[in-house]
């Protein structure tokens, strides 16, 4: 009985957080539209790949490329993570202190605010995709139900893994006040190894196998291919997401415990 009561109260807290964060995000919807536009990179890369003569050598048809990059665009929209920036700000301006006093791990506050932002992004992304398809009707494809279901699960896991990765590096704030420099560093492997600028199939075998042991292909390439309907190792992808997720969760828990002892309550 006690467990059920706790569960109910947890769900209530989560709901309240989600509703308030969603209201906050709606306030900034103009900003979110701009964020959404700034994720256009996969579509720019689609242009260059379709034009590049080399695509034939790799056996990419225009249709294959279009589906891949449009899917990558969608995945990128729903795996946007900015926790390092907000955590650094909250830490520098002393807002973290009241958060720590509340009976809820600050982790959840950030996590749920990301989810709320994704909800506000949803209509924007739908409008984007619909107008893209209206402009280029030959791009339209309908993924099958089973794959779409798998895609949704993979998308959520991908977002969680990317979030945990950034959360882990946010802990740097406890020792060094500037985490934003590290965020820029973290962006590099995401850019080049995740499949954002080039499908992993175009990589030389050695670099591809290197990329596959990092978490990056699983937070972009894997869910994109699921949605696009391309060949992909489904079981391996989910296994990698699960393993990276638990590893990062464990590491960030350890560093959180260590860091909080080091916390100096800036501005308090």
């Amino acid at each position: 009985m006690k467990i059920i009561n706790r569960l109910i109260s947890n769900i209530r807290v989560a709901r309240a957080l989600l509703i308030t964060q969603y209201a906050l995000m709606i306030e900034y919807r103009a900003e979110i539209i701009l964020w959404a536009i700034s994720g256009l990179l996969p579509l720019i890369m689609l242009g260059i790949w379709q034009e590049a003569g080399i695509s034939k050598t790799f056996g990419f048809s225009n249709e294959w490329l279009a589906r891949y990059f449009v899917s990558a665009f969608v995945v990128r929209q729903f795996t946007a993570v900015w926790v390092m920036v907000s955590f650094e700000e909250d830490n520098l301006e002393g807002r973290l202190s009241p958060y720590l006093l509340q009976p809820i791990m600050p982790f959840w506050r950030y996590f749920i605010s990301h989810i709320a932002e994704q909800l506000t992004r949803l209509p924007i992304v739908i409008i984007f995709i619909v107008s893209l398809f209206a402009l280029k009707t030959n791009l339209i494809w309908i993924p099958d139900i089973f794959r779409t279901a798998l895609f949704l699960v993979a998308l959520f896991l991908s977002f969680t893994v990317r979030f945990l990765l950034h959360w882990l590096f946010s802990m740097v704030c406890f020792w060094n006040d500037r985490a934003s420099a590290i965020e820029r560093l973290l962006l590099l492997p995401y850019l080049f190894l995740s499949g954002l600028v080039a499908p992993l199939d175009s990589f030389p075998a050695s670099i591809r196998s290197f990329a596959m042991v990092t978490p990056f292909p699983y937070i972009l390439s894997f869910p994109s291919k699921l949605l696009a309907g391309h060949d992909v190792n489904i079981l391996g992808g989910f296994l990698a997401l699960f393993l990276w997720g638990t590893t990062l969760l464990l590491l960030s828990y350890i560093f959180w415990k260590k860091g909080i002892k080091n916390y100096s309550a800036m501005g308090a």
Binding site: A52, G53, I54, R178, A181, L185, F192, A198, S202
Partner: peptide, 30 residues
């Protein structure tokens, strides 16, 4: 923030390697 210089140099190297690599993908035999 002197610690930043290490990160900055790492990111310059990473950026160079990554962008040259990506560019090289577009160049085949032709």
């Amino acid at each position: 923030y002197r610690f930043n210089i290490i990160i900055e140099i790492l990111s310059v190297i990473g950026n160079l390697a990554g962008s040259l690599f990506t560019l090289s993908l577009f160049y085949g035999p032709n």
